[in-house]
């Protein structure tokens, strides 16, 4: 029942918006076709402007991942994360999450397959994936689209928020689903 409501939201939301906004414009006597094409012409430039920023970011992340440095980082951090009750199996995914959305999603699927979706590890992985974002990607794309090079406090704030989300995911799952 609940899953049906969620499904219909995710299926219906975009068609609804695609109808609602032009309909509102039409009744307000906006020349909807002309306005649409006028706005849409910026799409190409924006996408092209992002390229150098995204190349820089994804190449650095790619090198870091491929080198095996991730395993060393996991070993360094695991004594700390163990203190809050995070199982060691989940840690690589937690570290991957801000770096690569696809990478983290792959690790989550692996954990769910290996330990089961209703295990403690499977639930933690699901909640982590759902409650955090790919910080480095968002930073490169959003700032890149307007050619911002000096990012000031955006990255530290984003990473602190990721850490808070991951810790919250661990604790909430422990409290709600026991031990």
């Amino acid at each position: 029942m609940f899953i049906n409501i969620i499904n219909s939201i995710s299926v219906g939301a975009i068609p609804f918006i695609l109808l609602l906004i032009p309909a509102y414009g039409f009744f307000k006597k906006v020349k909807v076709y002309e306005a649409f094409t006028d706005g849409a012409k910026e799409g190409f430039n924006t996408a092209v402007r992002i390229i150098p920023f995204l190349v820089a970011m994804l190449v650095a992340i790619g090198i870091f991942r491929a080198s095996g440095a991730m395993d060393i980082l996991v070993n360094l951090v695991s004594p700390i994360t163990g203190l809050i009750g995070m199982p060691g199996e989940v840690l690589p995914m937690a570290i991957m999450r801000p770096l690569s959305g696809g990478g983290a999603s792959g690790l989550m699927s692996e954990l769910i397959t290996n330990y089961g979706p209703d295990s403690m590890i499977g639930r933690m992985a699901s909640v982590m994936q759902g409650s955090t974002e790919t910080t480095f990607y968002v930073l490169a794309v959003y700032f890149g689209s307007v050619a911002i090079k000096k990012t000031r406090h955006a990255l530290p704030a984003g990473l602190i928020a990721d850490a808070a989300g991951i810790i919250a995911a661990v604790l909430v799952v422990r409290v709600m689903f026991g031990a």
Partner: peptide, 9 residues
């Protein structure tokens, strides 16, 4: 961006 332009105008 096209849809946003309609919403804006």
């Amino acid at each position: 961006l096209g849809i946003m332009k309609i919403a804006e105008e």
